[in-house]
Design a protein around this nucleic acid. Structure first.
Lengths: 248, 248
DNA sequence: AGAATAGTGTCTGTAAGACATTATGAC
DNA sequence: GTCATAATGTCTTACAGACACTATTCT
């Protein structure tokens, strides 16, 4: 490709009309998980505007072409607005697109999921009067009809999370800075929906070499437990074998 | 939500202007893999128009809001147009979105990957004079600069494929209707980039219970080999352990 | 017989499952 | 001491790795 082609491309771009063809509506939604009170919870927000005004939905909104450089920026911006949490664990899950999922027409939403430690919950009352709430998940769903196809998205996303917990260290991102192995095991069990053998669990997590002792102990009323923290560079660890799959 | 809210929503939708806010450009691209001549290959097409006119790119294009009901429809339509293959294995990989990846402005592309048996290659010359070609992958890339960020996409997608082959039956979708276990093993080895023990491979694949003998034999010049076919309902099988990871 | 590819026998290694046992603190 | 939770010892099981061996065809 010589100079001539470059000039032609420049000319093309100068006369390019971005509104010439119909484009789908483009959103980013996040499924924000946390674990507390022995249950997996998801953050929802109440919709201020039509469509589905007043319904609960996942945390999301439109890409702001002027402010967001990437889709992940959009997810992070919305997250910060609704939860005040700046940099949780964030992973792209799936993109749903079709002509019927939004009454305004053809729409696309790229869905992320975030894991945030329960301690970080100090949301609500951020950014005006928008309401947000945590709801407990049972059987992968909340007991409520959400806006758009967010029920379906939540269901699928939770399936993915449950599956991924069987072979990764993902749940460490739901923990506070210091935690005991039993606390971490409780979080695994909560997500998986069944109990694990403590010996197997410890063997597995410690051999992954992603945790280090803080030197401190958690003083419960009983035998104190060692506190651990994530080693720096907390990349997700992938085990080469699954832990026993949850029964249904 | 009562009748009144429904009416309000209806009124809202009637006056909704889909062009009121800037929307990103929306595409679907597919990485189409096949294995032949002992190598993993990817299908590319030459771009007819600006930008990157004349460059090679992944198989993709814009969502046609009138013809496509979902993003997957778009992927399938483009696939059919370029390869003549109607229903290969197709899986959503990732969505790339940002303001700098397309000179026309903020753009989003949802990327799928497809696996098609080498036998199905009868493409070219479909749909006008558009050119397509298969290129061999080495080190995850082709030796060529692709349009947009397609180099990067191809790299990441191939990483994902290589990783997934370690714990799934994905490569069966690259096989013709009847094939021998050694032929299947060759395809696994080609993707993973290293050899496997034939005994381990057979144990693993046969215990997955996804194949059945056809009763026929492949007549090579030497000892004939049993031919297998996929059992009906060819859902991807997930092994609970990885096979030995490829060295680099 | 010898070459080549198909396919098996079987031993070792690794990490998970099961579960009994010990350790440490509060009372 | 007892109770409760933390943590370990150790045997079994499941399946992959290694590799020697047998089986079937052709020349």
């Amino acid at each position: 490709m010589g100079l001539k082609a470059g000039d032609a491309e420049k000319a093309f771009l100068e006369q390019y009309d971005p509104t010439a063809f119909d484009r789908p509506n483009n959103a980013v939604d996040s499924v924000i998980y946390t674990v507390f009170e022995g249950g997996l919870h998801v953050l929802l927000m109440r919709r201020e505007h039509h469509p589905y005004q007043g319904n609960w939905s996942l945390i999301g909104g439109y890409v702001d072409l002027a402010r967001d450089e990437t889709l992940e920026d959009t997810a992070k911006r919305k997250l910060l607005e609704k939860t005040g949490v700046a940099t949780p664990y964030l992973e792209q899950f799936y993109t749903f697109g079709g002509k019927d999922r939004d009454p305004r027409g053809w729409s696309v939403t790229t869905v992320y999921f975030a894991l945030i430690p329960a301690q970080h919950i100090q949301l609500q009352a951020n950014s005006g009067a928008r309401e947000t709430k945590w709801v407990a998940l049972s059987e992968g769903g909340v007991g409520e009809k959400l806006a758009f196809d967010h029920d379906h998205i939540l269901q699928k996303c939770t399936e993915r999370l449950r599956k991924k917990v069987l072979y990764t260290s993902l749940p460490v991102h739901l923990m506070p800075p210091h935690f005991t192995l039993n606390e971490l095991q409780d979080v695994y069990e909560t997500i998986m929906g069944h109990k694990m053998d403590p010996k197997s669990f410890r063997r597995r997590l410690l051999s992954a070499d992603i945790l280090q002792e803080t030197g401190e102990m958690r003083q419960t009323g009983r035998r104190p437990a060692k506190l651990y923290q994530l080693k720096q560079a907390d990349e997700t660890f992938f085990f080469t074998r699954n832990i026993e799959a949850a029964p249904l």
